[in-house]
Each structure stands twice: as C-alpha cells, then as structure tokens.
Design a protein around this nucleic acid. Structure first.
Lengths: 221, 221
DNA sequence: CGGAAACTTGATCGAATTCAAATAAGGTGG
DNA sequence: CCACCTTATTTGAATTCGATCAAGTTTCCG
C-alpha cells in the first residue's frame, strides 16, 4: 500500500540494495515474530500481509503489489509483527535492513518517505476496520475490488493483464467472510455483469455498480 | 495507545505547550477532514477516535485515555483523517501543532518517540482488524476488555475507580456489533460473574475467564 | 415529579456459516 | 493424450449468530 519508494538502485553509492530475486507462488516470505533481516520491494507479482491465530483463523491485512515495500514498518521493528505470503510468483529487489536503517538516520528525505508510507498504511488499516465492522458482505467485496483497481492503476504495471490473481479464500480472509459465502456474492456480481471471473483471476467490468454499493462509507477508492 | 510522551511541560524552553484545558463529556474534539491546528495530551478522562459514514454508521478505531496523545499521526497530516469525541469530561494539555512539527525536525529523540507511537497504533489497528474479521461477539468483547484493562493499568491512573466509563453503544461501535447484542453478551458475562456493570461503568472481575474466551488469536492483552 | 437517556427483553427476521457433496480445472506421470 | 489426483469452486440444506423492531424498564437529573 502507499506509493513506491524512490529508486534505491540508482543511488550513487549503492547503499542497501543487495540484488534481485524470484520467489515462488504461495511461499511464506515472513513469519510473525521472526527477526527482521532483509526487506523486499516487489517488482512484479502479488503478495499479502496477514495475522494467523493458533487455531488457524487467518486475517489478511493488506495486499502487496508492484512498487510496494514489504514492509515499511519492519524497518523500525526488531521482529515482524505479521506474516507475509506470495500469491503469484514474485520478482523482488532485496535490501539489507541494517543499511536501510542507517540510511534512515542519515538521509532526512528517505526517512520522511518511509514514515509517510507507514502512515498511509495505518490509515488504510483504519478504513479496513470500518469495512469489517460496519459493512455487509457485498459491500466489503465491492470496496475491496474498488481499492485494488485503484491501487493497481497507480502501480500501473504491464497493461493487458487486468486481473486480480486472488482465490476466493484470499478474498474471504481479507473481508472476514467464508470462502463459501464469497463464492455466492461473486456469483451475484457475475450474473449482473459486474465482474468476470475465470480461474486465472478476477476482472472488474462495472466499477460504477461497485461504487453504488460501496456508497456511504469513507473513501472506498 | 502506546506509551506516554515525554513530559513536555518540564522542558527548559517550553516549546509547544500552550496550557491546560477541560473538555466536557460527549463533545466532538476533532472532525474528520478538518485542518489540524492543535494537539492534546489527555491528563484525565476517556475519549475515542472514530470514522463516520454518511449514512450514520460509525466505527470506533481506538479509545484514548490518560497519557495518550490525540493523535500522533496528526502531527504529520494537513487534516485529520478521523474524528475524536470525549467520553467522560476530559482534562488535557494543549500543544501548538506548528511548534510540535518544528520540534520533530530539530529533536531527533522526540521524532523517534512520535514515530514509535504511530507504529504502535498501526499495529493495534491490525490486531483489531483480526478481531472484527475473525472473532465472534463474545470474543470481541472479551478482547476489548482485556486490552482496556491492560492499557489502563499501564496508564496507572488514580486507583479505586477501576471502571470503564463506556456505554453499550460505544462498545458496539468499537466491536462492530449492535447495542442490543452487546447488552445480551454483557448480560451473559454478568450472570457468570465475569464483569460488574452498574450505570457508572463496567468493571472486570474475572480476567481469567475473558482470557479463556479470547484464546487462540494474536495478543489479546 | 417528569422526562430524557441508557439499558433490557421478547419476538421475528435475515445474513452468513456450517456441513456435505458434487463439479470443474489443472497438473502429472504413464 | 488420457487416467488420476489435487486444488478450487459451486451448490444445497440446515443452522446459528447477530440484527432488527418494538415495547418495556431503570436510572439519572433537573
């Protein structure tokens, strides 16, 4: 979530950049409580941050995509306070956490950038809180789609592939619903021509309809 | 949320402190989208941050009490991105926002303090997100009580009055339930001797029971 | 004493979950 | 290329949790 970081790689004295890497789909990248060692910036693909309870209940906090840092707040923390998993296969840039911290101390502007991303993330969490607390199932999904569509547009990304590579279980864990119920709501969307949805992913066709549903709450997109 | 700020008033050249003030109960302190002018540190009493939809739906984001800054993230923002209301009557210290921003620029340590409070708030929002997405009514209330009990203990506060001055509607807006349903859950708690609950407020008697209910999820207290 | 605000209670409704089974789509190795 | 296995999705029936609606209480406070 939030805008992309300034392009570290082009810096004169390459400070923290450690190279590129590819991560397979559906891999756990960070596990909650693990010490923070390196950070990634996503070049391509999708991932998500989540909390996991002992009994297996899972809540997705946010989705991550091209341009996103995984995860800004980890710069300041000893240990991760959430887990991260890749959705599709992931192209990332790897950064050394200690160097990044050093850069925070020395580079005023960089520090500001990171701070501002963290704040945006916090605000996003608060919007999500409203959705889970006060919206019904179709509204939650509508808002999620609107947000993702807007967010993906900003990250621009290679055109054409206008699809969210999300499974119904992902949507369920993000919206606080069950996979079965997500299936039913998506079906109703599909029947109205609001989304298209083969097994490769989900595509929004009728943003206007989604906006109408999502109306009333704070900034849905 | 988070630890108290260092005591501004005792600073040599009183920088941003503008005096004390009392705010009546159930007053709106900030309204979303208003420009940020001054910040308050609560000396006494309770308040809450919330989001409000056009249609009146409301979601409480967090409760604020003695020692809390209202609100750290506003230091960095042009405008408030949430509203704040007092619960009880409120004793506050008033700070000038411009001076605080200046202090952030000049005082490394202070800046760090503020940042760390913001991060704690963000993490708290994420824990709450799990609760709304993945917990049932009694669990949500149990966790809220545990959190408040822990939080209030840290703020220490004048002893004796071990009560949360919250109305059922407040609890409902914080947990994503209706007031009526909160009433029923509280009743079941009361019948088991878990809480006491006259019209002055709510008191937790059996933390152990609440912990048992809240089990399984991430850090409930 | 009267009236407003907060809480309780009961009946009914509805949204979403649960359980269980069927179907569809991919991927693999023969 | 097909049989087979795994994973994802659909579907239906029954159930449950929590919402809604509508009166009643209780408490507080002037």
């Amino acid at each position: 979530m939030g805008p992309a970081l300034p392009d570290e790689e082009k810096s004169d004295a390459p400070p923290a950049f450690q190279g590129r890497q590819t991560i397979e789909r559906r891999r756990t990248i960070y596990r909650e409580a693990e010490p923070v060692k390196r950070l990634y910036v996503i070049r391509e693909g999708w991932a998500f941050r989540f909390l996991l309870a002992q009994d297996g209940r899972r809540q997705i906090l946010s989705f991550l995509m091209a341009g996103d840092l995984i995860s800004p707040s980890s710069i300041f923390a000893e240990r991760h306070d959430f887990s991260v998993q890749s959705i599709s296969s992931l192209g990332v840039c790897v950064f050394d956490i200690r160097r990044l911290r050093e850069k925070c101390r020395t580079d005023e502007r960089f520090m500001q950038e990171v701070t501002s991303i963290c704040l945006a993330e916090k605000q996003h969490m608060e919007t999500r809180l409203f959705e889970l607390g006060r919206c019904r199932a179709d509204e939650r999904l509508a808002r999620l789609f609107l947000f993702l569509a807007g967010r993906r547009q900003k990250a621009s990304v290679e055109g054409g592939k206008d699809m969210f590579p999300l499974r119904q279980q992902d949507l369920a864990d993000a919206t606080g619903l069950t996979q079965v119920h997500v299936s039913r709501v998506l079906q109703s969307f599909r029947e109205r021509g609001v989304i298209d949805d083969n097994r490769k992913g989900i595509q929004v066709l009728d943003m206007q309809y989604l906006r109408r549903i999502a109306l009333g709450g704070p900034e849905a997109a």
